[in-house]
Design a protein around this nucleic acid. Sequence first.
DNA 1: ATGATACCTGCATGTCTGTACAGGTATGCG
DNA 2: CGCATACCTGTACAGACATGCAGGTATCAT
Lengths: 141, 141
Amino acid sequence: MTTRSVSAQPSLSDPAMDELCQERVIHVEHVTAIRHALLQNAEAQRIATLFSVLSDPTRLQVLHALLIAPGGELCVCDLATGLGRDDTTISHQLRVLRQHKVVTMRKVGRVVYYRLVDNHIRQLLHMGIDHSNEPSEQEVC
Amino acid sequence: MTTRSVSAQPSLSDPAMDELCQERVIHVEHVTAIRHALLQNAEAQRIATLFSVLSDPTRLQVLHALLIAPGGELCVCDLATGLGRDDTTISHQLRVLRQHKVVTMRKVGRVVYYRLVDNHIRQLLHMGIDHSNEPSEQEVC
DNA sequence: ATGATACCTGCATGTCTGTACAGGTATGCG
DNA sequence: CGCATACCTGTACAGACATGCAGGTATCAT
């Protein structure tokens, strides 16, 4: 889920042209362009982790439920029952969502209410949902 | 990658109130609300698959490279060299991206050029990148 | 205090998947 | 043709992960 880390990569020192001469290259300018603006491993890792949090059907159903919930929040019990899943499963997934700062919790007595953390997440969810409903928009630009 | 499928769920027949009486419920109206607007398994699966395609560091680096590529497209060779990865690895990942309609290919002689399929994908990528760069916006609504 | 409830966590298991090696196909060149 | 190149695919394996059972903690009611 936290996704595999990108393994060893060559140094990206500016005079990387040396090694380029020993590699398979068709358009040198493209390769150097990639290398200079390369998405760094750490960042790629972070983004991958974000998307991987959203890449599980159960978690998506939980998030969707929170997205459309009247008050914007739901307790574990109602979530589990509503989705027809074991409460431990929902609890496990909520922990994942919590650890990755996708949801926040609020405890009232023995009841714990969860809600989506911000609008950014809501947007991502909407985009995912929209995309999956589209036929497949053909290139514009 | 295609993500695990959501296992058995109870029937969501309208008179689901019967079984509700035998379940743990705190706010009945919330539970029924979830059940009536529940993200269906098939759709949850599709969305999860979309996000899972974006949840790998290597694929993200490939997509990012295509995102910033001068002409919007790159060949496998330059991609592999630019990212410093084995060409078979890049090829495997490009196939995944292709199968899930995230990139398209164009063959010229023995060179194959890949490009992002549409702006929807570009938006999703940008949102992921933006999100990972933010400190952690606090709730607005 | 006793029991019930709401939720959490440790663990085992079946399953999936990213990677690279080995080898295959197709195109271009001389 | 024969060779090199650009890319693809089959396979094996190590690592990751979602799920649910068993059991734990905390809060509430009687």
